[in-house]
Structures are given as structure tokens and as C-alpha cells.
Simulated scan of single mutants.
Amino acid sequence: MLNLVKSLINSRIITEDSTSWGEGFGRGLPIIHQESCLADCPKCENTCPTGALKNKVINPRGCIFCHSCLRSCPVNAITETEIPVISSSVSTEQLGQELRSKLKKDCRRSLHIRYVDAGSCNGCDFEINSVTNPVYDIQQYGIDFVASPRHADMLLVTGSVTRNLEIALQKTYEACPKPTLVVAVGACACGGGIFKEAYAAGGGVGKHLPVDVYVPGCPPTPALIIKGILAAIDRG
């Protein structure tokens, strides 16, 4: 487990095991226990819809947490990372205090984000919209979404970066004051997701821009998106 945590930290990935919002909510990253795995069994790899599982190794950037691999394993050699059960009120308050502290220390009390849909299915976009609702309300801590990239400190990008939006995404990044933080939100932005083999898909944000933090999931929760923003501020 310690090696898994270290590898995730080094990969700049914020994963679904970070937090949970109420009992029974959310799914952890699948873990393959090699000592129990059947060497000649391809079922888990064949059932993975995004190709995130190859040679008995799961790529977190491609995983959509569907758990098809877990259900297909005939010897139960695949489990998931634990998700701690935390009440939503406590977790929201903790995230808020951390945001307030980070912004005060590193961002002069404010952070401006330019959100870019680079060809998503809108699942991640709905979750991003939720971070400004009355439950999370990140604007009260000094975070605001801006219309112009010239005012942005950070790009929050969803989608696999389709061919029609490659140039638009690049120009948006170039228009941002430097240094610009980039956060890829959702499985499609992290590695292409289920659309990565499509003729019009660009394979994720990392192939087009330097990404500071990946937030996988299909879609990730608002809490994980906020944690991704916090992690990017730390790297800024």
C-alpha cells in the first residue's frame, strides 16, 4: 500500500481514495494482488473499457473506476483502495479551511480559474459547476472563474482534447499570464478515457499542455476537484 501511495504522489494524480461524501459513496482505485492473480488469465484486461489495465498493471490516469475488472476476476485477486467515510459537513469545512489558508499564503488571497471544455461529455463539467453551489461554494474563499484567460492563474480542463479544440486550448494557454497552473479533470482529460481510440480524440491534456495535477474519475467528485486545485497551488 505504501508503494502505491508513493507512486500516486509522484504521478501528480489525485485519486478517488482521497475522500468520500457519506457512507457508501464513491469507489476506490482497483488494486491487483499479484500473488493471487492467475498468470494466464486475460479477463480483467479484456473487460477494461479504456485499456487502463495492461500487463496486470492499472494506469490511474486511464481508469474510470467502473470496477469491471474487479467483477470479472474469477479468483477475487482485485480489490480497491479504502475510502474513509467522512460526513459531508466536516469534509467541506476542512477543505474550506485548507483553501483559505493556501490562498492567503500563496495566492495573495485570490485565485482566478479559466475553465476549458476541450471536448468532454459534460459529466465532469457538471461536477465543476457544483464546486460553486451552496454546498461547496469555493468563491467564498477567494476562488473565482473568469471569462478571459488573460486574467487566469489556472486552467481547469475537461475532455480528451478533440481535433477541433486543440488550437483553441493551445491559444487559451498561451494567453494566460505565466506561470500558469494546469489541472486535467476527469479520465478523458487525464489520458483520453473511453474516447482515446476515436479518430477525433486527442488523447488527453498532457499531450498538448504541461499538466501540473491530474484528477481522474468518470467523473471525479467536486471534493476531488477541489483537492486537485489545492494540490496545484502547492506545486505552483
Rank of each mutant, 00 (worst) to 15 (best):
F126R: 14
V116W: 00
K43A: 14
S148P: 10
R12G: 11
T79L: 05
T221D: 14
D234P: 05
N55V: 05
S68M: 07
I78L: 09
C44P: 04
P84R: 12
C121S: 09
L38S: 08
V211I: 03
T92Q: 14
Y173A: 14
E80Y: 07
H151T: 12
A198P: 02
L181T: 07
I32R: 03
L181D: 09
L165H: 04
L29T: 05
F145G: 02
N76R: 14
H33I: 10
I143L: 11
L103W: 08
G24I: 01
N59S: 13
Q34Y: 12
L70P: 02
I32Q: 07
D144I: 09
A152N: 01
K227A: 00
D40K: 11
C107M: 15
G202W: 00
V157H: 04
D234L: 07
C48H: 07
L2G: 04
T47A: 13
I14Y: 00
A168W: 00
Q97I: 08
R163F: 12
N3C: 08
R163C: 09
I194D: 12
I86P: 00
G62M: 11
K43T: 15
G228Q: 08
K171G: 01
A147T: 09
E174C: 04
Q170M: 11
V75T: 12
S11K: 13
V185C: 08
V116K: 00
S148Y: 11
A187V: 14
N10H: 14
D212T: 09
K43N: 12
C66K: 01
A201D: 15
P177C: 03
G191M: 13
S72T: 10
Q34A: 11
G142T: 11
S101P: 03
S148Q: 13
A175Y: 02
S101K: 15
L8I: 15
E98Y: 05
K6S: 13
L99H: 03
K105C: 05
A223T: 06
P179N: 06
R163M: 13
L165S: 01
G203N: 08
A201K: 02
V211D: 01
L165I: 03
R100H: 13
I229C: 03
S87F: 07
G96H: 05
G204P: 03
N46E: 15
N76H: 14
A187H: 04
I194P: 12
A231E: 15
G28H: 02
D40N: 13
T15L: 02
R61C: 08
P30S: 06
P210M: 09
R114W: 02
F195C: 06
A77Q: 08
D234I: 07
F25Y: 14
I32N: 09
L165W: 02
C44S: 06
F65R: 12
E82L: 11
A152D: 07
T15G: 06
I58H: 05
T132M: 12
